[in-house]
Design a protein around this nucleic acid. Structure first.
Lengths: 139, 139
DNA sequence: ATTTGTGCAAATCGTTTGCATCTGA
DNA sequence: TCAGATGCAAACGATTTGCACAAAT
């Protein structure tokens, strides 16, 4: 499997996305810090701080294009904010209710058994498991 | 267990909610048609059609109050729309990606095994499983 | 040269809020 | 009576869109 950090140009080309300055800069921000869950606004802020000049609209565009190309995975847990996960492998999440944070559960953990068959004419495209957690002792 | 349809007044009182005309009407709409997944706008429309006079703001208030009281369960799957499930029992869902519909999986199906321990100081407050499905044969 | 991407500001959409008015206990 | 509810319209926050301009092939 190709190492994401090795050559962003190639990655983008394979995704049929022109390697523009913005996309390269954003890819760098997204994929050079290990697995992460980030939302559009947060990435925007990070880009600003890093001196990367991109508009918020482009952030949204890019995140969606990356998601469509399989470079990112979109996750909607709650609230009205979409998170993008740089870990596109098959895995599930803990969701910290008090901080709105997502944490990866390593692959191989969690197993879903005894799934009923999907309704007639439909096929499974994915299984999302979210384990909601909260500070212990608080009900 | 108390039958929800028997006496809405009692239900509301037990939830410490004044049985106002609006709340009773909405409860009737929500709980007299078997299990369902409905969003605020849809309930609003349904109320209008049924000649029930309620403002959208009250719909939102009521849905949240019912949710806080355990009469409903809120589900956010995707998009930016919150669904409310009249089935508050422990169960999971199919999510039809093409129509944005939710379908209950009967309790007892699906089993989640081998959950990792939650991060230190946190306890599990719930496990949500969503099986995304799409029309068969379409990739 | 042509196609594709970008930035801005305005527009959307679901949802929430402030506040004056009404209603149930 | 009076705390709690409701309705309206304005406010909101995340996301999308339209369109002129800029950059990549």
């Amino acid at each position: 499997m190709l190492n994401k950090f090795e050559n962003l140009d190639v990655i983008l080309r394979e995704a049929k996305l022109r390697p523009t300055r913005q996309r390269i800069d954003l890819a760098k921000l997204l994929f050079s810090k290990g697995d992460r869950h980030i939302c559009a606004e947060a990435l925007f802020e990070e880009a600003c701080n890093a001196g990367v000049n991109v508009s918020l609209a482009t952030i949204y565009n890019t995140l969606h294009q990356f998601t469509d190309s399989g470079l990112l995975r979109a996750i909607t847990v709650d609230s009205s904010k979409t998170y993008f996960d740089t870990n596109t492998g098959d895995h599930h999440h803990f969701y910290l209710e008090d901080t709105d944070e997502l944490i990866d559960m390593p692959d191989g953990y969690v197993q879903v058994d005894n799934l009923p068959n999907p309704p007639e004419g439909l096929e499974i495209s994915g299984v999302d498991v979210v384990v909601r957690v909260r500070p212990a002792g608080r009900n």
